[in-house]
Design a protein around this nucleic acid. Sequence first.
DNA 1: GATTTTATTCCAGCATATGGAACGCTATCC
DNA 2: GGATAGCGTTCCATATGCTGGAATAAAATC
Lengths: 279, 279
Amino acid sequence: MERYPAAAARRPARSARAADAAPRNDGTQTIQRAVNVLRVIASRGHAGLRLAEIARHARLERPTVHRILKCLCAEGVAAQDPATRHYRLGHLAFELGLAAAPQFSLRELCAPTLSRLAERIGDTVFLTVRSGYDTVCIDRREGSFPIKALLLDVGTRRPLGVGAGGLALLMPLADAAVEEVARANATRLKAYAGLTVPRLVAMVKRSKSMRYALNDLPVTAGATSIALPIRTRFGDPFAAISVGAIESRMTPARRTELVEWLRAEVEALERLLAEKATL
Amino acid sequence: MERYPAAAARRPARSARAADAAPRNDGTQTIQRAVNVLRVIASRGHAGLRLAEIARHARLERPTVHRILKCLCAEGVAAQDPATRHYRLGHLAFELGLAAAPQFSLRELCAPTLSRLAERIGDTVFLTVRSGYDTVCIDRREGSFPIKALLLDVGTRRPLGVGAGGLALLMPLADAAVEEVARANATRLKAYAGLTVPRLVAMVKRSKSMRYALNDLPVTAGATSIALPIRTRFGDPFAAISVGAIESRMTPARRTELVEWLRAEVEALERLLAEKATL
DNA sequence: GATTTTATTCCAGCATATGGAACGCTATCC
DNA sequence: GGATAGCGTTCCATATGCTGGAATAAAATC
């Protein structure tokens, strides 16, 4: 599953103290590792994962992760299911999130948009933001169509580039930047229908030419999704709105129609954001 | 040099942890400190606070806090307003909160209750949970009365015992337990209308005898609030529902009426929770 | 029930976090 | 406007606190 590139490689065999590659002496190794562990836990969402898995994905030794987790659990940031021994996020993570929420009002800002789209389209609509080399789904609205493609839960972390939302966020970037992101996530991509760096780059290219992101990988069999990026007034993409549905409801004709509706809503949103930011 | 022993002595009373004294050699000092810093930042909510303030509240040296914060900001857990230099929670705190949310469904469970109460009462209704020696407001509903007592924002952390909700959470506890909590929070209480340990103990005692928590301290001038605890089927209080309003709408007669409504709703909630937990 | 895999504890050793000192900057006061 | 106080930041010698290999216990798997 997910490997985090940020996880510092093992301690460099100390050859020359001053010269060589940055010896990292900012005195924050432990915190970096702890935060990384939290990101790994979050990427599994509700299900949680075991110690050994976390150690693998965070590229750390088991005793180290164990010690970190013991502390995080004691503090309430993480929690362990006593039955399965799976680690999950704890109550303090939830509470800190509540305290942070007012500063990230994108969700509220987009709420009417999502509702309108879900009602009009009938399928599931997602709001996704970029977070480093990850994406996080921050909201979701279900449409009325009885077969619902609930492709991802609110709060889910995935490598940037996976899913229509992830593709949309890469679309506006220069080729070099896309390459960089793809390579940073190389190992983690495999878990998504065996996605590879060149494959991802090709999908971004295709999305660019169509002017909307299309995810037809069988990550969830039988489902297809499309997305558009939301950009700041400087053109930087920071979020995406996507629609997921069963394949039969994603014919090229219907996709064209959906993209039109999406584009109108996204443009309205971008205008709204530009206003808000013009100080 | 006695540097660390001194630091150890200054370490604040840890929540949910055995008495200090012990030399603590579990190799997690840094993480504990970082989490503590986050709690301090969260307790200030939207406004944020400066480095020196954080250092004071966390009982740490400025360079130490600075180093921790630099890392937390780089990781996205915290963020700094470049203009005011105030630190706040960052996007990752929000995102981790989203990922943790599904496991803490109390909010959704209580949502109808809060709405009903707010509509019936017309004043502001709060849902608060206990978190160690703190309370956290996890939801709020405004009534229709035009003067709104928005005493605390969702996400706000306060010392356990402050406010009607905090009192309600202490009400069902034995006197010794109340004392313990009050003393653990002694220093922090001062910030709330000069509240002291004996004063708080007395307020809890009064609340016990009235069978509802009453907060008439001038923390917010002109406002009064009342609350009832929500208990597990084992009798442990873990949350509280409170109502805040201007003094003139909190006469003894009206309080009696409000408490009746609150009690009915709380009892219904407790039955619902007992059902859910009986597996 | 044997074997593999995982969770946890221990501890020697040294890399890492620590905090005093120092410096420049900003805010406040008179 | 000059003095003063407090804050933010960098630096670095030091020894503390973190690390991870090894060992052991506990589960999971076959």
